[in-house]
Amino acid sequence: MKVHKIDDVKFSVAEGDNQMHPLDRLGELHIAETGIVIREGESIYRISFPSLRSVEVVSNEPLRLRLTSKGFQLEMEGCRAERLWALRSLILPIINGDEKPKPGTKTLLILLGAGVKGVPHLASIMGLDENEVQAMLDDFNSEGIITDSMDMTQQALSLFTPSEKDFLVKLGVKC
């Protein structure tokens, strides 16, 4: 199998949705024809492209990527951020995009967090009609993203990046 080295990386792996450990392992990140490969000393691990569900940016400074696959998550930081950004851009079209929330989701949640809960106001600010906003709120509620009193749940908070959470804290949302 041919592989091409992308960068030296610090990484960590967690099973399922378990909490990630600090990035305490060192390895080399490579790309192969069918997936990405991590070499850690004598051990070589492969993650195939079709098995990947998402490639998220966990933080910008330094750039940390989280790759989620069936059954595990891998987080990594490299020496050259642009190489990891490039890998993300290469992979996303292959896996049909990132798992980011539907457009407007975060804006609506931030407005709710700020205390704007009237559907007519939310609709006028977001440029949507009231039925669309109500449908989004109903979906959020049934998916467990907001409570019956339209407060954000922990599940909602998991959609935000660390810098977005800082912003929510200023609005008085407990993160």
């Binding site: 792996v13 070589i44 691990y45 492969r46 195939s48 696959s69 069936k70 059954g71 595990f72 891998l74």
Partner: peptide, 8 residues
């Protein structure tokens, strides 16, 4: 090579 997906 170990497939992480298969192991998972």
């Amino acid at each position: 090579v170990t497939s992480m997906t298969e192991e998972a």
